[in-house]
């Protein structure tokens, strides 16, 4: 009895014809009503076409709301009702809308999350560098790939700090046996020609300092290799002395040091590299006139008898 009473209180009888009349008057479709109530259009149609179907009170309230009327206006008053025993089917998913399978949704989520993490990591890394209290100093050496026997060639060492600083710097370079230092910018603090050790004791002001020196290996035979080793010690790096990285070998061969591809020419790309490398070193003599002359002429040969370059037109 109680179950029956409870069930009856949950169910009401609506006037299907009245619902249909109100719907058509407002120009609403059955699809609209079905979506509003959360049932299928078939259910709406059944309600409208049966005389007084008995439906869930909750659904009746939604019908009234969709029709913008009070609930009593669509509830049957006193006539016999026809109980709608067909289960009120929930509304299906909206038609013609593409859906993603659960598997695809998972993959897409993973891809998006990974991409988002990469972006966040990159941003964190960039912004942390801006405020990082840790300063790192490194040194990089650039050497030509080759040089004829006994010919001077330049060595460039660039010292860089992770942020602008002002502290003392000690740079040590060990020359290969038989190599003689010639000139330097800035000047050497000390140059032990016998032991082959060069030193600069200076300050790093800012984030970058370039050291360059000319050296020649009078005794190194053709096809031998010269090996350079060096270290830096900067004011903040107590107890550590990193090696100078970058190039550390030069081969003795009958090609100008600026002729990187060994085609007996200094072409446009090679001369651009030379000027780029030494643009910060005004007054440092690398015999630029000879390089310009070889470039303009289009060729050169190395005369091993005289120990000189001979500029030739190809």
């Amino acid at each position: 009895m109680n179950d029956g009473a409870q069930h009856n209180s949950l169910m009401v009888r609506i006037d299907g014809a009245r619902v249909k009349e109100l719907r058509e008057r407002q120009g609403l479709t059955q699809l609209y009503m079905a979506t509003a109530v959360g049932v299928t259009t078939e259910t709406i149609s059944r309600w409208e076409n049966r005389r007084y179907p008995s439906i869930m009170r909750e659904n009746a309230a939604k019908l009234a709301e969709a029709l913008e009327v009070e609930l009593p206006e669509i509830i049957e008053n006193d006539s016999e009702a026809e109980t709608d025993v067909t289960p009120e089917q929930p509304a299906p998913l909206p038609p013609n809308k593409p859906t993603l399978s659960p598997r695809l949704k998972r993959h897409l989520s993973v891809i998006l999350l990974v991409a988002l993490m990469l972006v966040v990591l990159q941003a964190v890394r960039y912004y942390s560098q801006l405020s990082s209290p840790t300063i790192t100093v490194s040194a990089n050496r650039i050497l030509p790939p080759h040089v004829p026997p006994g010919q001077p060639f330049p060595v460039v060492i660039t010292v860089e700090s992770s942020e602008p600083v002002s502290f003392s710097l000690l740079l040590k370079e060990n020359l290969p046996p038989g190599c003689e230092p010639l000139t330097a910018k800035p000047k050497f603090t000390s140059a032990d020609k016998k032991g082959g050790q060069l030193k600069w004791v200076t300050r790093l002001e800012g984030a970058r300092k370039v050291f360059a020196y000319m050296v020649k290996a009078s005794l190194a035979p053709l096809n031998s290799e010269l090996i350079f080793i060096g270290r830096i010690l900067a004011g903040t790096m107590a107890g550590t002395s990193p090696d100078i990285r970058g190039d550390n070998r030069v081969r003795i061969a009958n090609f100008h040091w600026a002729d990187r591809n060994r085609d007996h020419r200094i072409d446009d790309e090679e001369i651009l590299i030379v000027y780029d490398l030494f643009s910060d070193l005004d007054g440092f003599d690398i015999n630029r006139d000879l390089i310009d002359e070889i470039w303009a002429a289009g060729g050169y040969v190395w005369d091993s008898d005289t120990g000189r370059y001979v500029v030739v037109k190809p």
Binding site: L112, L113, A115, L116, V119, V120, Q122, A123
Partner: peptide, 8 residues
């Protein structure tokens, strides 16, 4: 997620 990705 797409908006955050593009903005980032």
């Amino acid at each position: 997620l797409w908006v955050v990705l593009v903005t980032g």
